[in-house]
Write a protein that binds this DNA or RNA. Structure first.
Lengths: 239, 239
DNA sequence: CCGCTGATTTAAGTCAACTTAAAATTTCCT
DNA sequence: AGGAAATTTTAAGTTGACTTAAATCAGCGG
């Protein structure tokens, strides 16, 4: 009649921070600032300040006071374990449970900190070892390897450039829902038509139909440029 | 980039208590004592004493000081919601994820307090609206109905009585593992051969083979007695 | 290079859910 | 019924993860 006491009733808060720091520093090489973390985690900067000191003491982050934090090798290892779990869960929620790609994020977030390795492995196997999440983000391997991304922002290429939708970088449910209502999905062919000036709308040819997106939303769309594309990417992929 | 803040970093402790109280009072009509709860939850009786007062203030339990607690109607409703979630999760873990029946309990326990109604409904649907968990316990309906059990303890029938294994009431992984290693599974035909005196071993014919079990373990096996059984049940089903 | 602004850190307090130790209550035994 | 033993409750302290308010620091504009 006895089970595991489920002793720690509080969820490992460190994982929350590690995870947030990873998201904030992903790609760009800068440190995550206290304020940015506070915003991301929805708590005050004072709280963050205290907590990151504890993380630093545990060797999970490198802390430069009044500067910000970066993950240490160990911190990064942990972050990638969580990211892997998160993304596999997202695929699981979509492929097995039948949720839409806009319904996965908070659920995966809640689940990722209670499942164990065996659970992760079963999902991975059932799903056929997926390599990316429903939004196109690559899934780190168990030992923390992450495929380098070759995609670029839709808004970073010359008008006329065509490619394939590789990734969507927003987590926002409403935005994702709207995008799929436009018929947008991974691996669809897309061609940038025009970017209106002064933060104007972005026109793109999506699988034959022309859609118009606000600049912020367009920015979250990543594409792999076709080999024979007419225009060239203006800059490298970001975040 | 923002998600739900996952604000309450602490898991709803009340659910833990409700759940434990249900398990302790299931079947028998007595109140759950402070000590029993403390044992079940792995905390001190002092802590339980404080907490159940809070639960009482919330109208979830009826508290008689120095006596114990019983669930109120509302408390029972909540307990049954958790139990339902738990048992559906167990089926899910076995049927979809491929875990053994001894590997489900702690995992379902961890998961049951982070999934939402939609998740529960998807599982229920995918599983074809199962009516019992892998250990044979009935699954409450969404509105808290629970099928009355008609099974009795294997150790409560006259030697010679035959029936079908309906349920196993232990949660212990090792015990469950051992039972399945003996070839025991739900719905198998079984016949009580003999109960040795002085808390002696219990001999049973299990699907043709005779197995010998310690009295405690045998006690956790429930059977539905065959209509044409030679012996009659000695007492009603318990716990 | 002085001072102001905004970001960051420290200090001190809160809250839930515990803990240990002591006090109160019930139960059991003769 | 009387008193020891067991159980339960109260009191007071601890812990983790916050909070608000005050103090400190970086960085730049003039």
């Amino acid at each position: 009649m006895s089970d595991l006491p489920i002793k720690p009733l509080r969820i490992d808060a460190a994982a929350n921070y590690i995870d947030a720091i990873y998201r904030l520093t992903e790609g760009r090489d800068e440190a995550a600032t206290t304020n940015a973390l506070a915003e991301e985690l929805g708590i005050t900067s004072a709280g963050v300040s205290i907590m990151i000191k504890r993380l630093a003491a545990q060797g999970l982050v490198d802390l430069t006071p009044y500067e910000g934090v970066k993950l240490t090798a160990e911190g990064l290892r942990r972050a990638l374990r969580i990211i892997r779990r998160h993304r596999i869960l997202e695929i699981f929620l979509v492929n097995i449970l039948g949720f839409g790609w806009h319904e996965t994020h908070p659920r995966a977030r809640a689940l990722e900190r209670v499942i164990d390795d065996a659970f992760e492995d079963r999902m991975d196997e059932i799903l056929g070892h997926p390599t990316r999440c429903p939004h196109g983000n690559p899934i780190p391997t168990r030992d923390g390897q992450l495929l380098p991304l070759t995609d670029v922002a839709l808004t970073s290429v010359e008008p006329g450039t065509s490619g394939t939708i590789s990734r969507v970088t927003t987590d926002d449910a409403d935005e994702l829902k709207y995008l799929s209502s436009l018929g947008l999905a991974l691996d669809l062919p897309v061609r940038l038509v025009e970017i209106a000036p002064f933060d104007g709308p972005v026109a793109a040819d999506l699988n034959g139909r022309t859609v118009h997106l606000g600049p912020r939303l367009a920015d979250s769309i990543r594409i792999n440029v076709h080999e024979n594309a007419r225009g060239a990417a203006r800059r490298e992929a970001a975040g």
